[in-house]
Amino acid sequence: MEFQDVVRRRRMVRSFTDEPVSDESVRRIMRNALRGPSAGFSQGQAFLVLRGEELARFYEYVRLWTFESVKTAPVVVIAFSVKEAYLDRYAQPDKGWTDRSEDHWPVPFWHIDTGMAVLLILQTAVDEGLGAVYFGIGADDFDKVREAFGVPADHEPIGAVAIGHGAEETTTGGTSAWTRKRRPFEEAVHFGRW
């Protein structure tokens, strides 16, 4: 598929068939996730891929922040950002900071880079002919997820992506998809000055 087709077709799919996703597709999606930008090549992202019984356990521990129909997706990927990897990396001699202070960071690049990896997951799912939806995980559920799946304490879940074969060709979106339109290009993009 051409890249522009991937971008144009990417949308949040909230209803899935029970058709399984091939291991080959899952591995390609995850390999692409690792190709995202990473400040200083800190590589402070990690992913937990859940299927089958593990996925059922996930839904026992986590309040779903999207449509119940998302639970029919056969794969969920939890994306984690690892702030410590960035603080450690930028305290190394080639980066010029002598400490691990968060004050050096104008924005949390660990979350931004992980978000970019999530977008690669969403785009690669489209390229594989699959549907996907990103959904949040409530902060109250972070420790439950870590404990249930043996995730290190310094890994912060920034959300999850459900992946599967979309049940419908048309948008099944929430109220936002029905009531809101994309902002016009001219309102969002400014050249030279605002």
Rank of each mutant, 00 (worst) to 15 (best):
R9G: 05
V133D: 04
T17M: 01
R100G: 08
R89T: 10
Y134D: 12
V49P: 03
A39T: 12
R180I: 11
V13P: 01
F135W: 15
T17E: 08
E187H: 14
A162Y: 05
V21Y: 00
F3N: 00
D18F: 02
F3I: 10
T171Q: 07
R182Y: 05
F149T: 13
E128N: 03
F149V: 12
A91T: 04
A79Q: 00
E186W: 04
D141A: 12
R182D: 08
E169W: 01
V49C: 12
I137P: 05
G150K: 09
W194F: 14
E186Q: 13
Y59K: 09
T124A: 11
A85I: 09
E186C: 11
R180P: 01
V21F: 04
V49A: 07
F41P: 07
V151M: 02
V21D: 00
M116Q: 08
G150R: 10
F41K: 15
A188N: 13
R100M: 01
E186M: 07
V62Q: 05
V13Y: 05
F16S: 06
V161W: 05
E68R: 14
G136Q: 03
N32E: 06
G115Y: 07
T17D: 09
A56C: 00
I121G: 01
T17L: 04
T172Q: 14
Y86I: 07
T171V: 13
